[in-house]
Design a protein around this nucleic acid. Structure first.
Lengths: 124, 124
DNA sequence: TTTATTGTATTAGTAGCTTAATACAGTAAT
DNA sequence: ATTACTGTATTAAGCTACTAATACAATAAA
């Protein structure tokens, strides 16, 4: 997993997105123990405070739960994970369409470009 | 045109994106005179300096040219505009696929979701 | 010639993000 | 009991983005 950050956006919110993705994609399973704040901060090469802030967001969403002395674990609720996954995907689709339409592309052109990209990726 | 900004990203780079989109989508035609920095700053409700910074970026790309005393105009080169438009679209497609794959979606699922979204938008 | 408008530059102040260096309280393992 | 690890909180510093308030030179219009 790469920990590449855009210069254009706050690192803590990029950390939220990365961790969200790792959880809903199954990289971390329900109930899995997560690495500690300090450990993950070293891995991502960010300050522990920044990682802490990202985790606070994830906890607010319910994706992780915190046990003050034993560390953090991924939620045991697969339905919640699945729900978040669908919502993130839906957001991506909506955002993608909005941007393409702003550029003046039609629905047909968008689906065509998408199919092309899909078949192009098949051969890699 | 809405001038809504994310809190999560610098305003000047969002201004660049918006102006880029307005130009390549044909909202401003090749050779069109653009509103002045001060005028656009009022319209977008940002500081003139911030708008100025956005324009500097656009000029670096060649999309607009500056005449120090008469104002700015959109490039007369339709090929450049078309090229930028295609590049922006291509970036959107690539970025969309990357995000969806990170969530664990397959090519088939991505194209299916895209088609659904397209047909859904037809009926609105 | 005067006036208004253009882009551009400068300086200062505010706010948010990030890092750094600590410190504290609770728990598991030894 | 001691040790090591957990999450959490605090304070200070540096950096960038943004706003604000100007000022200047060049041109078009009156």
């Amino acid at each position: 997993m790469a920990w590449n950050f855009d210069n254009d956006r706050p690192i803590y919110s990029q950390l939220v997105e990365i961790l969200q993705t790792q959880i809903v994609s199954g990289e971390y399973k329900p109930g899995d123990k997560l690495p500690s704040v300090r450990e993950l901060a070293i891995t991502a090469a960010v300050n522990p405070n920044t990682m802490q802030r990202a985790f606070s967001e994830l906890e607010r969403e319910g994706l992780v739960s915190t046990n003050r002395t034993t560390g953090r674990t991924v939620t045991e609720d697969p339905a919640l994970i699945s729900e978040v996954r669908k919502e993130l995907a839906s957001n991506h689709v909506t955002c993608f369409f909005r941007k393409m339409k702003e550029l003046g592309y039609t629905n047909e052109e968008i689906t065509a470009l998408t199919s092309e990209a899909a078949t192009r990726e098949e051969n890699e």
